[in-house]
Design a protein around this nucleic acid. Structure first.
Length: 804
DNA sequence: GTTGCGATGATT
DNA sequence: ATCATCGCAACA
């Protein structure tokens, strides 16, 4: 028997099937989809068995045997194995990457080299220090890592030892499956209950009255509940009254949290009309894509919940995708409240182990709803009845590293396989999706009214040029100050939005124009007041603030641009007693801090929530009556064809935080370009007009959705070489692609250098290009050699999010 | 002869 | 990706 295997080596030369002989002992256990350990050259690695056959072209001398099986049952379903095949072609990524991305991180293998003292080694040649390293533990546990922190002398010494054979390298393949275990005790069936002390009786009674929940039987839990010491339990075990067991338990990330049962809400007419066709598609099992455009607060979540209800009734399963940062407790609460323990939650705030357990619960059919971020689109269900993507326009649905897939496209592909509907929901759909809906590719569902007829907030645009003219040089307009003042007086809350973290965006010398830049990246350094340092947001480089200009030694070095830190400071200057909670990457990096800050704001421990885009979503507090957008045009002038779209979406999203309940909301938008259409249409809550205006711009510029884009990104340490390679790629593509397809480049990336690597790109614009994948693959083949021997990197991004 | 290095080729 | 091998130069 021959196993056709994809090996775990993400490289172009190994991105193909390798045949292995299946030892007889495994023949009845092995199945397609099972992972195996195989010898590959001198080492041992993991691989995925694609299929089993009886023939091979590999000469008998070269054919090697599978060492052992990793799994007893295939971790990925048949459908997901097929999906990986589709995914690798779509994204031009390696087959192995497409397979690995579908597994939880804990199941991906890691490789390290353990260095130990060989038998019969002559140790007299080695220094004390080195021998001490080897005496600890099992020698050097990870050779590659150790080499990085060791000194040159140490490295040389060990290398010499390896050559002489005194030290030995043992390659270790580790698949990280981490099951959580606990020690639990259960009453023995034929227990002799004699001569018990009072405390022992107490514990025994307690255990007898426990239910079936394995967690309740954990020794640690019992000790805590009864207040006795471990010795009491040990004594009972010795006497035979209790039995000790080690068992695998599942972590519950939401342990101790209560979820109140939530009944389906009565729907408004618009909601009923939107739900009906989805429901019908669920019932008849039709692969149809719906675009549900509903204004903020129109009750989209309720539609999702009720559609899922139908799916569950049919005995099928549901996937709900939400943007990473909106996985706030609010969303989880609603799903858990409605579907209870039948819900698995998958998102980045969980530990690797927790994600693994949630994933296993799906694989073992213990749940039938998965709520999660992008990668949850690969949830290993086998009877999918619906896939829902909330906030479908969100950029985070596109994975930024290989395989560069878009969750929306994956969802639609899976929907086809299971013949089930896909629902894309948003208040501000992406232009691509809305255009498809207008063409009839997707079915459009619209909800223009907020639940309970709550009014859309009033949006006023404040022209900051006027403010400047009238002498106000601060970042807060008069109107904004007055509005915040009123909120404080009325004990209401305000949300202030500034899409830039740090203190200032750059520092510049007023005399000579010098701007502090990162020495490794072509980008200005940002000042962070908490560490009193300049920082590069791309490579993490940091430097002290110069007091004198390094160029002209002038003292007039000043901060320009505003970040959240500075905004907080400025706010305190105006309102000395104001209570502010700031939310940005810097204040929410610790686990759980995001939730904590939101909770504090919800408990009215602050008057103002000041933050970057992470506060744009999911916030739903009754006392927010003011939303202030401090710099609406901060994203508008980025050299990205989606800049207007992003601005409109973000502003609409943030505005939607105001007045969602009884009190009316007010939104103030500060801008230097009040006439820009994406700002004007936010004012009128007018998505349709925005769409029309922006479509004209896209048509004129030849951008999506009128054209498809594919970006070829080239980087290397040498500038000339980078440009030269990009140019060769551009020529190659022009030569091989059809006449209607446009190839631009080479052009420098938006940030021409990051971490000392120059970055150039080449953009392909096309309408129909059947040969594209093939051509790009040939192109990569021709550069294979160069990619191997230089530091060159070529990345292909189909349908890129941004033009980085 | 030994050691250190980069380039080259193969992995079933 | 990673390992082994080969060739070449520097060194003893």
């Amino acid at each position: 028997m021959i196993a056709r295997t994809i090996v775990d080596v993400p490289a172009s030369q190994t991105d193909r099937v390798f045949d292995y002989a299946v030892p007889e002992e495994f023949e009845h256990l092995i199945k397609p989809g099972i992972r195996v350990y195989v010898p590959f050259g001198p080492r041992k690695i993991q691989g995925f068995v694609l299929e089993l056959t009886d023939t091979t072209d590999v000469p008998a001398g070269k054919l090697r045997e599978i060492s052992r099986l990793v799994d007893l049952t295939p971790p990925l379903t048949n459908e997901l194995m097929m999906l990986a095949d589709w995914l690798k072609d779509q994204t031009l990524s390696y087959h192995i990457s497409a397979l690995q991305v579908m597994l939880p991180a804990a199941m991906r293998a890691s490789y390290r080299k353990n260095v130990v003292i060989a038998e019969g080694a002559e140790l007299a040649n080695y220094s004390e220090a080195i021998l001490r390293v080897f005496q600890q533990d099992d020698g050097i546990s990870d050779w590659d890592k150790w080499q990085q922190k060791a000194t040159k002398e140490e490295r040389k010494e060990v290398a010499a030892g390896l050559r002489r054979g005194d030290f030995l390298v043992i390659p270790v393949v580790k698949s990280n499956e981490t099951e959580k275990r606990q020690t639990a005790v259960y009453p023995s069936i034929n227990a002799k209950l004699e001569n018990l002390t009072a405390k022992q009786k107490l514990v025994l009674d307690y255990i007898h009255n426990l239910g079936d929940h394995p967690e309740d039987h954990a020794v640690a839990r019992i000790l805590e509940a009864t207040g006795v010491t471990r010795s009491i339990i040990d004594a009972l075990v010795k006497k035979g009254a209790l039995e000790k067991k080690t068992e695998v338990i599942q972590r519950d990330p939401y342990e101790g949290r209560e979820f109140h049962d939530q009944k389906p809400a009565a729907l408004m007419q618009e909601q009923t009309e939107a739900l009906q066709p989805v429901d019908e598609a669920v019932r008849s099992g039709r692969a149809e894509t719906f675009l549900l455009r509903g204004v903020t607060g129109s009750g989209k979540t309720e539609i999702y919940l009720q559609a899922i209800e139908s799916v569950l009734q049919k005995g099928e399963e549901a996937i709900v995708l939400v943007p990473e940062i909106s996985l706030t407790p609010q969303m989880v609460t609603r799903f858990k409240g409605r579907f209870g323990s039948r819900v698995a939650v998958l998102h980045s705030a969980l530990s690797k182990g927790e994600k693994y357990d949630e994933w296993q619960r799906i694989r073992n059919k213990e749940v039938d709803v998965a709520v999660g971020a992008r990668s949850a689109v690969f949830a290993p269900f086998e009877n999918l009845g619906i896939i829902i993507i909330d906030e479908e326009h969100e950029a985070s649905y596109k994975q930024e590293d290989a395989p560069r897939y878009h969750a929306r496209e994956v969802a639609i592909q899976r929907g086809k396989h299971y013949s089930c509907p896909v629902v894309l929901g948003s208040a501000t759909p992406s232009l691509e999706s809305f255009a498809r809906a207008k063409k009839g590719v997707y079915r459009l569902l619209t909800m223009e009214k907020r639940v309970n007829d709550v009014k859309m907030p009033d949006v006023s645009v404040i022209d900051m040029r006027e403010e400047l003219r009238s002498g106000n040089r601060s970042m807060f307009s008069e109107t904004m100050i007055a509005a915040i003042q009123t909120r404080i007086e009325k004990n209401e809350q305000a949300v202030l939005f500034l899409n830039r973290r740090g203190y200032s965006t750059f520092i510049m010398c007023r005399d000579c124009g010098y701007v502090a830049e990162c020495p490794h990246c072509d980008i200005s350094l940002t000042y962070h007041s908490s560490q009193r340092k300049l920082q590069c947001h791309y490579c993490g480089y940091s430097h002290t603030i110069p007091t004198l200009c390094p160029e002209c030694e002038s003292e007039s070095i000043r901060f320009f641009g505003t970040g959240t830190q500075k905004a907080e400071e400025a706010l305190r200057e105006v309102f000395p007693d104001i209570r502010v909670i700031r939310m940005d990457v810097d204040t929410t990096s610790r686990k759980g801090s995001h939730e904590k800050l939101l909770e504090a704001f919800g408990n009215k421990e602050a008057d103002v929530l000041l933050g970057t885009q992470m506060i744009a979503k999911g916030l739903d507090f009754p006392d927010i009556t003011l939303v202030g957008i401090l710099a609406a045009d901060s994203m508008l002038h980025l050299p990205d064809f989606r800049a207007s779209e992003r601005t409109f979406q973000l502003l609409t999203q943030v505005s939607g935080r105001a007045g969602r309940h009884k009190r009316p909301g007010e939104v103030l938008v500060q801008t230097y370009t009040p006439e820009h259409f994406s700002i004007q249409h936010v004012k009128e809550h007018d998505f349709l007009s925005f769409f029309d205006d922006e479509m004209r711009v896209r048509k004129a510029g030849g951008y999506p959705p009128y054209f498809f884009l594919t970006l070829v990104h080239v980087s290397a340490e040498d500038l000339e070489y980078t440009v030269q390679v990009t140019d060769r790629i551009a020529r190659f593509l022009r030569e091989h692609l059809s006449g209607q397809t446009l190839v631009y480049g080479p052009v420098a990336s938006q940030i021409p250098r990051i971490k000392d690597r120059y970055r150039y790109q080449c953009m392909i614009k096309y309408k129909v290009e059947p040969k594209l994948t093939e051509t790009l693959q040939t192109m990569m083949k021709t550069f294979e050699g160069e990619l191997n021997r230089s530091d060159l990197a070529i990345v292909i991004d189909t349908n890129p999010n941004m033009m980085l």
